[in-house]
Write a protein that binds this DNA or RNA. Structure first.
Lengths: 151, 151
DNA sequence: GTCAAAGTTTACGTTAACGTAAAGTGGATG
DNA sequence: CATCCACTTTACGTTAACGTAAACTTTGAC
């Protein structure tokens, strides 16, 4: 938000299925940056904050599918107003899942429940805000109509 | 967000109908602050940013129903990730409406259309994020189940 | 080989949205 | 009258999330 632009709406063609390691493309930081309409700086910053961990080829960062998906999820989280810290919490839990102990798994389920509740509250906020915008819209159109009749 | 708490969910009993000036209660800054679970500082800051304009009784700020509603809308906007600048834009337009000229009214309609589009994008983001959380949730429960069988 | 493009690290700068502290005012109350 | 309590203004501090600039390396094109 506040970017006003329609930014960050890029995506792949939706199929993120769990293939062994088949399509395994890689991306440079610049490619990802263009793909999601962010700057390389942003991507490096997310890495510094523990949200991404690309391989290196010499000095250069090499991003794999997994990294691209993470970035996508991160940006979506951001659009929904979550802080990077919150996003990291979920992401790290998710990564620790395969060999996770019971305590961690339960903690992950807790976090998810919290986030879900937040999303529900947001849905309600959106609903209310829409109603109010409908009202304003209607009134503005009325006012415009009045002007048209007189002028 | 990132407040983690369930903050700011207060409201009146939903009926904000347009009564002449009947119930016209007033509030102190402290009352409003408690009512919406924010600090007085926040409310003063919003005033400084042009989002509120309470009357004064000597030095003290006196808030009327209109101010309370504005604060409520402002906080709702914030929860949805809008900046104070964006919120102010809509609010000021809305206030300028009654005697607004055609140009202003059209601009207001434009802004509303933009905000609506943003809300729609958010709905889509929420939908997608929910799907992914469902997935994570299911996998975490599966993993927990496996642990239960073995241990 | 050299030039440009894209990448790297390091580090200081910026903005929004408040927090926090200091110092003073006004009225109700024991 | 002293003492709270809630309020006020002024002003500096803080945090998140990057922006921006400088100085350097790597690499493909010519």
């Amino acid at each position: 938000m506040s970017k006003t632009a329609s930014a960050n709406r890029a995506s792949g063609s939706s199929n993120e299925a769990r293939q062994p390691t088949a399509i395994s493309r890689t991306y440079s930081i610049g490619e990802l940056a263009k793909m999601f309409e962010v700057t390389p700086r942003t991507i490096r910053f997310y890495e510094q904050e523990g949200l991404l961990a690309p391989r290196r080829q010499g000095q250069k960062r090499i991003y794999r599918e997994k990294d691209r998906v993470r970035l996508k999820l991160t940006l979506r989280g951001k659009r929904l107003g979550f802080s990077l810290a919150e996003i990291r919490e979920v992401v790290m839990m998710y990564d620790a899942m395969p060999d996770g102990n019971a305590r961690q798994l339960k903690r992950l389920l807790e976090i998810i429940a919290e986030k879900r509740a937040e999303l529900d509250r947001q849905l309600e906020d959106i609903r209310l805000m829409r109603l109010e915008m409908d009202d304003v819209d209607r009134r503005a159109r009325d006012a415009l109509g009045q002007l048209g009749e007189k002028g």
